[in-house]
Design a protein around this nucleic acid. Structure first.
Lengths: 247, 247
DNA sequence: CCGTGCGTTCTGGTCTGACCAGTATGATGA
DNA sequence: TCATCATACTGGTCAGACCAGAACGCACGG
């Protein structure tokens, strides 16, 4: 059973990457395992160490392995970070994608809220309740308020108990919060905004507690629509920047 | 304006990566641009070429950059492939995530179908119509049928005209189709399955054509639910593997 | 004058071998 | 027996070199 059997034709990086991919996909390399040292891997595959490092770095970027300085390389369970990086770069080059991403976020959350209405545990309820309280408390603080808002929505997704949904939502949240804070400042001016923020979230929470997926979805969807409408009016109506320090 | 200003403390890979990230996020490196040669980049940043290669390889994994053999490195618009790789690895190590991913797919498609009902163009209608026809034609072929099925759903997402939704859907589709084919074979046994496949998709299409987002969503959601039910029954009822050659 | 062909230059791809700096482990001493 | 220290081992990096193919420009032929 030759080790170099895999990816015979390939050279260097490709060879190492293919080798490791096989092992990872086949399951012979599981999360927590420590990889063989770079030098030995290079010997086994008949490639140079730089080639091995490239492959390891590539896997690191995919979140598959983690390189521990002066310790070794270990396989880890993939997590959000990769997607976060990806979206960060992707959106940086297409800022107009933000509305696009917002739509995806709505998609995720609406599905999540349905699942949450079915699966939410006591702990989930508590987390959401806590976020609701924070929202009410920070209603006059655009910065903390935005954070609290996001916390509540994140709590919903968590309550869905879906790893994938959490991952996707998390990766989008990272950059949406950035653009959101500025937008929220605009909207803050509206007097009705406060009751909207508090009551709307409350209604969503109630629907989840009531174990009513349909109502939860509808309410959440309307919540987004109203927020959109507020922003639209804010942009059109009072485009007066009230703060000189434009971030 | 020193080039090495960025990430002064960092060394090697980190330095190069930070440098390029800054350029990419700031927009001074746009899709289509050709990066400076590896050697020159190494010189500018005062690092070795292997370090540069690692950074470039990392960006390649993120889909930000494309290394063209013996030509150069160019910035490209990020696309699906990265997420596909990620999910491939992620699911290999956690097969139980498949149901999880399925939920995410439902989330994406339900949002997409709403948007599609609003934004779908003639071309989109045609694409969906074509897929519907193919579904009907390949109704007895598990393999081609699954493909056609996926085509239709993909057409819905395309009709939403949302880059992000497309990306997410595409990345999930890559691996869902794999597990789907086998599942579809199971389900194929049911006689009512054929009408379900044809009529249900037709109904979804009709709702989109009618520009009725709500109905489209509801119909699609029910479509998934029914499919789930079929699969459940198939697994429970006739768990007899009819083919010895297990792929 | 224009077009084709060839050669130089430049690109990424890779390798070799070496050094550095912490870690981990074992042997050694108290 | 336990604490301490030396050494082997790890990843991180560097330097310089070679290869093969692509790109470009120049010279030659039509």
């Amino acid at each position: 059973m030759e080790i170099t059997r895999i990816a015979e034709g390939a050279k260097g990086f490709e060879k190492v990457f293919a080798f490791l991919r096989e092992r990872l996909l086949a399951g012979s390399l599981k999360p927590g395992d420590r990889l063989v040292p770079e030098r030995e891997l290079a010997l086994q595959l008949g490639v140079s160490r730089p080639a091995v490092r490239e492959a390891l770095r590539a896997l690191t970027m995919l979140g598959i392995v983690e390189i521990l300085d002066r310790v070794g390389t270990v396989v880890r369970r993939p997590d959000v970070s990769v997607l976060g990086d990806f979206f960060t770069f992707a959106l940086a080059q297409q800022a107009d994608l933000i509305d696009d991403v917002m739509e995806a976020r709505i998609a995720i959350e609406c599905q999540a809220v349905r699942l949450a209405a079915t699966r939410a545990s006591i702990a989930d309820f508590e987390r959401m309740q806590r976020a609701l309280t924070t929202i009410a408390e920070t209603i006059d603080d655009a910065d903390a308020g935005g954070m609290a808002d996001f916390e509540f929505h994140a709590a919903i997704v968590l309550a869905a108990h879906s790893e994938t949904l959490s991952v996707l939502h998390g990766s989008m949240g990272a950059l949406l919060t950035r653009s959101h804070r500025s937008r929220r400042e605009l909207v803050q001016a509206f007097g009705t905004m406060k009751t909207y923020l508090i009551d709307d979230h409350r209604r969503i929470f109630d629907a989840i507690v009531a174990r009513d997926p349909e109502r939860a979805d509808t309410t959440l969807r309307r919540h987004f629509a109203i927020g959109d409408e507020y922003r639209r009016q804010a942009v059109l109506g009072l485009a007066e920047p009230r703060k000189a320090s434009g971030e």
